[in-house]
């Protein structure tokens, strides 16, 4: 049994402690918003916040999350609300297939939590570990800058 907090709720995970956190979230916890992209921590699709830091859940064993705070895309904002980054992504229509977006929004939320006034360069740097294949990069950057305005307000 591994105790951890997921999206603000204390949980007890029964999976083997060596199981990738991604599989625990998507499998036994039913939180499928976090994506499998490569399993090699090279694309960012599976990013979650671990104590506020974006980490690749595909290579993070459950045991590493013991006693810690995990936030997934489903928990970026309380209840049915949207995080300003999620709202801005919709406003800018910054998506095509949308598969990379969970990880991108997790990276962006982490950035805005530590720097509510990032410039474009800081946004690009914060997202550079996330891959997108459809080519919505510039829309995403615009959306995150817009969300920063909302967060700062």
């Amino acid at each position: 049994m591994t105790r951890l907090t997921v999206n603000g709720t204390p949980m007890e995970a029964v999976s083997d402690p060596g199981t990738p956190l991604l599989d625990v979230l998507r499998g036994e916890m039913g939180l499928t918003g976090t994506r499998f992209g490569c399993g090699l921590e090279a694309c960012g699709a599976c990013f979650v916040l671990l104590d506020g830091q974006p980490v690749a859940s595909c290579t993070t064993p459950l045991s590493v999350a013991e006693g810690r705070d995990v936030v997934t895309i489903e928990g970026l904002a309380p209840g049915d609300e949207l995080h300003p980054v999620q709202q801005a992504i919709l406003d800018e229509q910054a998506g095509q297939c949308g598969f990379c977006l969970s990880g991108i929004m997790v990276s962006a939320a982490a950035l805005l939590a530590r720097d509510p006034h990032p410039d474009e360069e800081a946004v690009v740097a914060a997202l550079d570990r996330n891959l997108c294949r459809c080519g919505v990069h510039r829309r995403v950057v615009r959306a995150v800058l817009k969300a920063a305005g909302e967060v700062a307000r």
Partner: peptide, 21 residues
């Protein structure tokens, strides 16, 4: 007109929508 994408709200909220889910 630029109608917003109908599928994007689910994908942005992380609701199950992909075949992977």
């Amino acid at each position: 007109t630029s109608v917003p994408r109908l599928d994007l709200p689910d994908k942005v909220a992380g609701r199950p929508r992909f075949i992977h889910d």
